[in-house]
Design a protein around this nucleic acid. Structure first.
Lengths: 195, 195
DNA sequence: GAGTATTGTGAGCACTCACTTACTTTAAAA
DNA sequence: TTTTAAAGTAAGTGAGTGCTCACAATACTC
């Protein structure tokens, strides 16, 4: 009675990285469904069997990109039992790998698209989680307490720093060396002052 | 012999604010030339007599928006002879008026469009000037010198802060009160540490 | 008033692109 | 082998959109 079982989930999983990569490279508008299909080596309407519309593909990509980044952080910190050096390690890593995965290109694209509530919500959720992670890392890597600048505020500051740092890369406003230097010293200042 | 003189320059000047407003509200892609024409209360092809293409309209808007903001700063600082309070005044102003003029929406839109060299250059020019202004303001409002964080780096930090602050507004990540608080304390920390 | 270039009108071209439809082929289950 | 739905193909639809064109009206100069 039952014919062949659906492999939709498997295929979704298989194609998602390609979809992510494409959106990261081209942004939302310039990523056409035709382009997507070509890169995935399927026909357009097959994509439409996996996701209801282009926006759903984009949302899936946003979620996946955030997941990957969170996992990346996990891996980086996995082999560091000492909580002291964690923040420094993350700062070093981010300073080094800024703008590599098109993370912020997707964010900028999404922000330019912000009037769509679903996109807005997805992005909002992502930033909140992101902020939470940063706060955790700052908090665990700390001993002496200070005042004035809360950890939460400092975390937003760091996220802002990461954002402008990506813009700096996109626009070649600073050379790589200067940018890393800038990132490190501003990040240090924020982390040091927080408490 | 000579027929009526051209008023192209005047009309460009007259319509530019409307063009700016539209791009700020809708971003680049969703701003259609039809929409632009409608808001300007002219026909599309008249816009095309004022600017060669849509991109030129966008570039004109970017420039004008930056000009306005620079002028705004000038006015705010004009009646403050005391250089000490200038940075604080600017911080207070920015914390208050964040996200009002669609400044950053235009930037995000433009960034999503970054593969276009002209847009890239225009944006790049704008950021450099912006950064220069911030550095000037930090420098003039300072007496005692400190180390570690250069004024230039701190200025990038402030611009990053302004950026994430706009994102926070767009996504309602914080309430207005919290956001202003956050902005003020991070900005203070950066300015205090710089030198 | 004559001549001229500007300003305004309205239609529409050429093209892109998200999404669909009608159909054939395939393969798993019974 | 037969049945049944999934997987794949190819073509197309319709809405949007940047941009143009042919032409009429206007108002300035001489």
């Amino acid at each position: 009675m039952m014919p062949r079982p659906s492999q939709i989930d498997e295929q979704r999983k298989k194609l998602l990285p390609i979809v992510c990569q494409t959106f990261s490279e081209l942004g939302y508008r310039r990523t056409t469904t035709a382009e997507l299909a070509q890169r995935c080596e399927v026909r357009e309407n097959i994509l439409y069997r996996l996701w209801p519309d282009k926006k759903a593909m984009f949302l899936a990509a946003i979620d996946d990109i955030f997941q990957s980044r969170a996992e990346m952080w996990g891996q980086i910190l996995a082999d560091l039992p000492d909580p002291e050096s964690r923040v420094e390690r993350l700062i070093a890593y981010e300073a080094q790998h800024q703008g590599e995965f098109g993370f912020y290109r997707v964010i900028f694209t999404a922000l330019a698209e912000t009037d769509d509530d679903e996109v807005r919500d997805s992005l909002s959720r992502m930033y909140r989680q992101f902020h939470k992670l940063v706060v955790q890392q700052i908090t665990t890597g700390r001993k002496g307490e200070r005042n004035d600048l809360t950890v939460s505020d400092a975390a937003w500051g760091l996220i802002g720093l990461a954002t402008i740092s990506n813009i700096i890369v996109e626009l070649s406003l600073l050379g790589p060396r200067q940018r890393k230097q800038m990132f490190a010293s501003v990040a240090q200042a924020l982390v040091k002052d927080a408490g």
